[in-house]
Design a protein around this nucleic acid. Structure first.
Lengths: 302, 302
DNA sequence: TTCTACGTTTTGTCCTGGACAATTAGTTCG
DNA sequence: CGAACTAATTGTCCAGGACAAAACGTAGAA
């Protein structure tokens, strides 16, 4: 039960920090300082891996590595998510409290109760409002708690898994028939988050679009092939807030070049907020905007 | 629409070959030979990326890189999956044909028809036989076709996504109540495949176990935490055939050391076939064996 | 004061070329 | 024909240098 030994590849897996970053941090900041095995290769004690995970989390929340790594581990208190915290004035306090209740079910690891509560909300609100007023804000809430460190990785996974099931189930009950436009939904490699895609799919399907869900992590060239094979009118991608922002414009531009001009390219999710425009790409900065875009697309076809 | 430029990170993403491998292949075998940009950094033409994908696929099927990279691209014909191809004598020819029909629906990109056909089979067979006689062999069939190159990436994604939905939906309809044992289901980082987990979950849930599905790609230390938080009796992992076999024993051993001794550790999926025993880990080489293991666990508790 | 333009620092990624251990293939011997 | 051994193959790791893009901070303009 003691003393697992992490080599540099294991640390990369478990922290998401690349080997290059791990080595250059060691050189520059003096942390981490792994032991070495017989062959001079790095062996990280579990304690340092923990601290790296913490640092990574705080970085995702906007802190800078240089500062963090100079601080002793009591920066655990620097957990302050340091986002200006826009007070949720949009929705009433009652709604916020209800969402908090849902999250606390997750934090009590009571998956069954969570599922039941969500099913009830779905029945009460209907799918469209359920997506916009429950799933979306709850996802943001969990994301915020994650940045704060008040949610464990496995709790977040449980939340994601159960919520995925609810959405998929709801989507499955929608009627079939002749539908348009045809929308391929997927994400790029290194973007494993699927909740945003499912929310979009639910809304698009409600509006009568034909959704072709391809899951996550499609290589760019494959996305182009899929669009051709499915005679798609639109390719919709999702980028989570966790996705490295810098890479997004390049990716979109690259995909735009391999995609036929008559296929629209839409990009949504938390990752595309405050992003510069990319020629030929529609940035959907919110779920509502997705529906606006869909309507605009339809008008343009006539 | 032409000439997308892949840097080495993009190629790593799209092919799954690490930067180190890409550079060392260039040094040793003279392929790939990317162009260089103004700063001397590698720029891979799309054509070479394609070829790398092909090579990777053939490697996963058992070929060796040294040979492949020395062969001109007409090794497209070496597609022969070179597995001894055990003729499917186990199930009647009729069953095999039916599975082929299902797969051809995917290859025609007719998701709706596929879903309907699978729903029918589920209703006809019941969940247990549906999992064992339809989903499992169909998954193997798609995997074999994938190695052969007769299935596109996006077709495989569509199959996976739709099948996931069917299984999750079926699981959701199972009754709740007091259940035992408590089984945490997940996979390690770098193992994104979830179909195996879902099949196992369906069977376990049918047998009255309490399944806690955490999705895929949990860091090892988090798996231990999740097991504690959920008071799990068993942690069940899934390794697909695509997962690098060498890493599995080390991973299992490492997880075994961080997991309390009273929590059982089970590993299943195509990746654990022909694997040496690991102390304290139950290797489930088939779905049937999973049920045997569950029964054995129950007997031991009495 | 608030905002914009510009220099500075920080930071991630890429580079080369060497080394080595673990797996796999091939060969010889019992 | 199988087992033991040698040779080739192959992925991963290492060091340390370099550089561009992003973040930051400061000064000047509105």
């Amino acid at each position: 039960m003691n003393n697992p030994r992490f080599n540099i590849a294991a640390v990369e897996r478990d922290t998401g920090l690349s080997k290059d970053v791990l080595r250059v941090w060691e050189r520059r900041y003096g942390f981490p300082v792994p032991d070495r095995d017989d062959h001079g290769e790095r062996i990280y004690p579990a304690e340092q891996v923990e601290r790296l995970r913490l640092v990574k989390r705080l970085m995702d929340a906007g802190h800078r590595p240089g500062k963090l790594l100079a601080t002793p581990t009591e920066e655990l208190n620097a957990l302050a998510p340091r986002r200006p915290e826009p007070p949720g004035a949009a929705s009433g306090a009652g709604a916020a409290a209800e969402l908090g209740d849902l999250m606390s079910l997750i934090k009590q690891h009571d998956g069954a109760a969570y599922q039941q509560a969500m099913q009830q909300r779905l029945a009460r609100q209907g799918l469209e409002r359920f997506v916009q007023d429950t799933v979306a804000p709850l996802t943001r809430l969990v994301g915020a708690a994650w940045e704060e460190g008040s949610v464990e990785v496995f709790e977040e996974h449980l939340f994601t898994e159960l919520t995925k099931r609810l959405l998929r189930q709801a989507i499955a009950t929608l009627p079939g028939g002749k539908r348009s436009p045809r929308i391929v939904l997927t994400s790029v490699p290194d973007e494993p988050h699927v909740l945003g895609l499912l929310m979009a799919e639910a809304l698009f399907a409600l509006e009568g679009a034909e959704c072709i869900p391809l899951g996550t992590q499609m290589p760019l060239l494959e996305i182009a092939r899929a669009a051709a094979a499915h005679r798609a009118d639109i390719v919709a991608l999702s980028f989570s807030v966790a996705f490295p922002k810098r890479q997004i414009p390049g990716l979109l531009q690259q995909l735009r070049t391999v995609l036929p001009a008559e296929v629209a390219l839409w990009a949504g999710g938390g990752g595309v907020k405050r992003l510069p425009e990319v020629a030929g790409v529609e940035l959907l900065i919110s779920l509502e905007r997705s529906l606006v875009a869909l309507e605009a697309w339809r008008r343009k076809q006539m």
